[in-house]
Design a binder for these strands. Structure first.
Length: 745
DNA sequence: GACCTGCTGCGGCCTG
């Protein structure tokens, strides 16, 4: 037995020795020569089922086994009553993967493994209903459905529950699904009447204390943190820069036919040709930031294969493609017999095992450093291989009317800043502190379904006091219940019991109820009765504010949130920036690093010739325009206000300016304010700097499109504004910025 | 011009 895991070291033999004999045997049979670091550390922490644990380790470092070896050992010790464990995953595909892995192990232990999600046949789910033991792999939505549909059966179904495991923990933190998950975990413990050990697994956790607080909100300090050693991987980066010709924007016909903008530009072809040249013959992932670009590039690459008479190696993968198309691409990547590259959106960023990938290509700036990091985690997973990142930035040709963001080459500078931050080990922390009133509404309706009615006091005790929604006070809660009554979501019987109202009944009984997040909705853009197209709106809008669409500027006349229509009129003024950040919210630290990149004189080592030339052009502009000291200047009939801040601060300041009568537009590193003098703007900034209270209810009084989350429509108006501000605006920093800007000039 | 995730019960039909 010299090659057994037990012999690798003393500490190892101790952890290995704690496992059930049958699991030890299985490990030998698999031919494993040693336990991985994460497994060594997790076994002693989990085997007694007496605490919460987070296991942070790189992708493919054996996190699943790290959790399940000791958990299954614990269960086997209590034979014949082995009990059950709940494994919660954000993705169905991940559940299917894990089902395969765990079934191999559990078959030999005689422990059932049941996958439970929307694609699983009811007959297989019935196995767990009949005999609720073993491993149940489930999504938060399916767990929600169990509470709603089988509320009275839940205490029985969960009575033997010993652990709850949450996979890809980082994917939940700060999001609607995360708040829902916290609420479900709390309700589970109330259902079984005891504290259940919670286990979180993740590869991308920055702030471990934050993750612990998420996993056990009332007692984050007690969560045991296991951070596995990571064999410091080498990273190779190259960013290539290209200059694009300006898009057409002169003739009237563009308005009638916005598709004119979609013609493939020369530099797009250049990028596609370079991708073809360097990617052929290996497995890679290409991320071009939008579904449309995915289609564009995968088509160009595929046609390149045809033209050269070679088998196709390029596959498209995104959320609007059917399951069949997506599985074709996944199969091609996993297969291994022939090289395959997927051109994809975030669908291939997380979770499912697609095998080893040689390089990651990022076309345009990444949406965030966290996302870039997650994407890169997919590359160079074989021992000794470097992770390879190829960036492609296309910048517009400059003219006398070019916008500030084009002059500073915002796309390229953002890419450089994000790579520098990645190398330094920084990435965006999840945004916690959102009120999540929308998800509270869902949970109120769910608890009523679970119990066939509930009093206000019971709801308060289950969801708010000591529950997942502690951010709400009693007055808020009472107001919310009353408002839900007005919307016919709730009704009250003579004994005071709250039941579903007419509308609530209908919504809870439809399967769409189980997900806490809303599906995409777009606003239709209308000009003089003519539809220009539709777009998702991520920034708050106030009338007379400007937006950019189809390469033109428009002024907002009216927003109809019910009909989802924005009425606009053409706006005169400078050319709109061709770079629009891709729509993702950019963090403060990224914008500050962008400024450092421009200020810096040292060459950036990971740029090609084209990108180097663009960078020095941008640095020249920064120096000549004196942007190190100038924060505000007149340009045509508008004032440009350089903030160098993240979008939460920028949007906050835009809303504060709206409150004092100025319609500002967030354009990334700067706000622009049309039809105003610098003097008038200074007065406005001074007024903002002196505001003693920053009440979101007042600040957002005129903001129109602030319905973001699924149940926002059912929230009392004031709560909605508070909820929106808690997630999307940083008003305090925005006021501080107004103060700084005023003093600096 | 960002992206992604998830979903029950039942009626009706077919087959053995």
């Amino acid at each position: 037995m010299t090659n057994s895991p037990a012999s690798s070291s003393d500490a190892a033999s101790h952890s290995f020795g704690q496992l059930d004999e049958r699991i030890q045997r299985w490990i030998w049979q698999e031919g494993w020569t040693a336990l991985r670091d994460a497994q060594e550390k997790a076994i002693p922490a989990l085997v007694e089922a007496d605490r919460d644990v987070i296991v942070a380790a790189a992708t493919a470092a054996g996190k699943t086994e790290a959790a399940f070896f000791p958990i299954l050992t614990h269960m086997l010790r209590h034979e014949p009553e082995i009990g059950s464990v709940l494994y919660i995953s954000p993705l169905k595909a991940l559940i299917n993967d894990q089902w395969g892995r765990l079934t191999g192990l559990c078959e030999s232990l005689d422990i059932p493994v049941v996958a439970w999600h929307g694609d699983v046949a009811a007959s297989r789910k019935h196995k767990f209903i009949k005999d609720s033991k073993g491993v149940l792999l489930i999504t938060p939505e399916s767990l929600e459905a169990l509470f709603v549909r089988r509320g009275t059966a839940m205490p029985g179904l969960m009575s033997k529950l010993r652990y709850v495991v949450v996979d890809e923990l980082h994917a939940f933190i700060g999001a609607e699904r995360g708040k829902q998950l916290q609420s479900l975990l709390h309700r589970l413990e109330r259902t079984v009447g005891r504290r259940l050990p919670r286990v979180g697994l993740s590869a991308t956790l920055g702030d471990m204390a934050l993750a612990a607080k998420f996993l056990r909100p009332e007692d984050g300090g007690s969560v045991e943190l296991i951070v596995a050693k990571n064999g410091g991987q080498e990273l190779k980066v190259l960013i290539k820069g290209y200059v694009e010709k300006p898009p057409r924007s002169d003739s009237e016909s563009d308005l009638e036919n916005p598709q004119m903008e979609d013609l493939v530009h020369g530099s797009t072809l250049e990028v596609a040709e370079h991708l073809y040249k360097v990617l052929r013959g290996s497995n890679n992932l290409v991320f071009p930031n939008s579904r449309r670009q995915v289609e564009l590039y995968s088509d160009l690459l595929r046609r390149n294969c045809e033209r050269n008479d070679v088998p196709n190696e390029f596959w498209a993968h995104h959320g609007s493609l059917s399951k069949e198309f997506r599985e074709d691409a996944e199969r091609a990547l996993k297969d291994g017999s022939r090289p395959a590259t997927a051109v994809c959106t975030t669908t291939l960023e997380l979770g499912i095992d697609i095998g080893a990938v040689k390089s990651i290509c990022q076309v345009g700036p990444p949406p965030s450093v966290a996302s870039l990091r997650q994407r890169l985690g997919r590359s160079g997973r074989r021992k000794g291989e470097a992770a390879i990142l190829r960036g492609y930035c296309i910048e517009p040709e400059l003219g006398p009317k070019s916008s500030l963001s084009d002059c500073i080459r915002e796309g390229l500078i953002q890419s450089i800043a994000m790579v520098r931050l990645l190398i330094r080990g920084w990435f965006e922390p999840p945004l916690v502190g959102g009120l999540h009133g929308s998800t509270l509404i869902q949970q109120i309706l769910s608890v009523i379904a679970e119990r066939g009615g509930a009093t206000a006091g019971e709801l308060w005790a289950t969801l708010v006091k000591g529950g997942a929604f502690e951010g709400f006070d009693r007055d808020d809660f009472v107001l919310l219940l009353r408002h839900m009554g007005e919307k016919q979501l709730l009704t009250q019987d003579s004994s005071g019991l709250l039941l579903h109202g007419e509308v609530g009944e209908k919504l809870v009984n439809h399967y769409e109820f189980y997900a806490a997040f809303a599906s995409d909705e777009e606003f239709r853009l209308q000009c003089e009765g003519r539809t220009l197209g539709s777009l998702p709106v991520s920034h708050p809008l106030v009338p007379s504010q400007r937006i950019i669409f189809a390469g033109r500027r428009w002024r907002v006349l009216d927003v109809d949130t019910e009909k989802k229509v924005i009425v606009v009129t053409p706006d005169k003024g400078g050319a709109p920036p061709s770079f629009d950040g891709g729509g993702a919210m950019v963090h403060d630290v990224v914008r500050q690093e962008m400024r450092e990149v421009l200020r810096d004189k040292a060459p950036v080592p990971f740029l090609d010739q084209g990108a180097t030339a663009l960078l020095s052009e941008a640095r020249d502009f920064y120096r000549r325009a004196n942007l190190d000291t100038v924060q505000l200047f007149q340009r045509g009939n508008e004032v440009v206000l350089l903030t160098w801040r993240g979008d939460w601060v920028n949007d906050g300041l835009a809303m504060l300016l709206a409150g004092v009568g100025l319609a500002a537009t967030n354009e990334g590193v700067a706000l622009t304010v049309p039809r105003v003098s610098t003097d008038r703007l200074f007065d406005a900034l001074a007024e903002i700097a002196e505001m003693s209270v920053l009440d979101p209810v007042v600040v957002l009084a005129d903001a129109k499109n602030i319905l973001r989350e699924k149940w926002d429509w059912a929230m009392p108006d004031e709560m909605l504004r508070k909820s929106y501000a808690s997630l999307n605006l940083d008003l305090i920093e925005a006021r501080g910025l107004a103060e700084t800007l005023r003093l600096a000039n």
